[in-house]
Amino acid sequence: MNPMRLLILLAMLLSSSSSYAEQIPDSKIDLQKSALFLEAQAAYDGGDYAKAIDLYKKLVEGGVANLAVEYNLANAYFKNGNLSDAVAHYRRAEYAAPRDPDIRANLRFALNAAGATEPYSSLIKRFLGTLSQNEWIMVAIGAYVIFTLLLFLGLLIRPAKRTLTKLSLLPAAILLISAGGWWHWQQLYTQPEWVVIKSGTTALFGPIEGSTAHYKVPLAALVRQRSTDAKGWIEIQYDGKNGWVKIDDIHRVSP
């Protein structure tokens, strides 16, 4: 079996098994949320995207953290012509569900509609980005439990000690990879992603007004922060090039 599939399966198993421990939500509040959601969907279908945005936003502001709300809100923004917010919400949805083909397709579509390049990722980063941070943590926990279990059995069943110890290397390796996956997502806190919200934004060579223009960044482009300046400038990387933009021209996407 493909090791990636194995990892995904393990993550899904763990997340499904742990879902039993979830608290049962208050059904009355849930009904209200469902009503809002359906109302937003109806507004969207009726072409009233502004209303759909309001309703979805109401859900988000009410503490709802469902992927579907984030995705649908992004769709409503896109339809309403607000590419920057659409890209931001698609990307946030992608953080939670990196393998969701709908999110990926719509994000790509929105970026292309904006004329922006898709963020470049190396092969390793693409691999580490296959699972979300939560999923990597679940995989790590699973690997840790299996690792300790195998070692425990190795101590208990003496004749099988060598085989079980060797076998424990596999979960140990998965544990290490999971640490890498966790670290990959943790980078979003130290080098967050931003979306360009101002048309005609130009990245400059230096963090100073009047510095030489380096390149233009399209509206709704996703850029990665490299460093910051105390005077409200952010050094960004876009399409492999670094440049400085004002913090007012961009909006943070990463958590």
Binding site: I29, D30, V64, A65, L67, A68, F78, K79, N134
Partner: peptide, 21 residues
């Protein structure tokens, strides 16, 4: 066009709820 909306979730998750782990 973009892909259509996602259906209503079976369970409502809240951002304030701690992750299980």
């Amino acid at each position: 066009d973009i892909i259509y909306l996602k259906p209503i979730p079976k369970k409502w998750k809240t951002s304030v709820a701690l992750a299980k782990y």
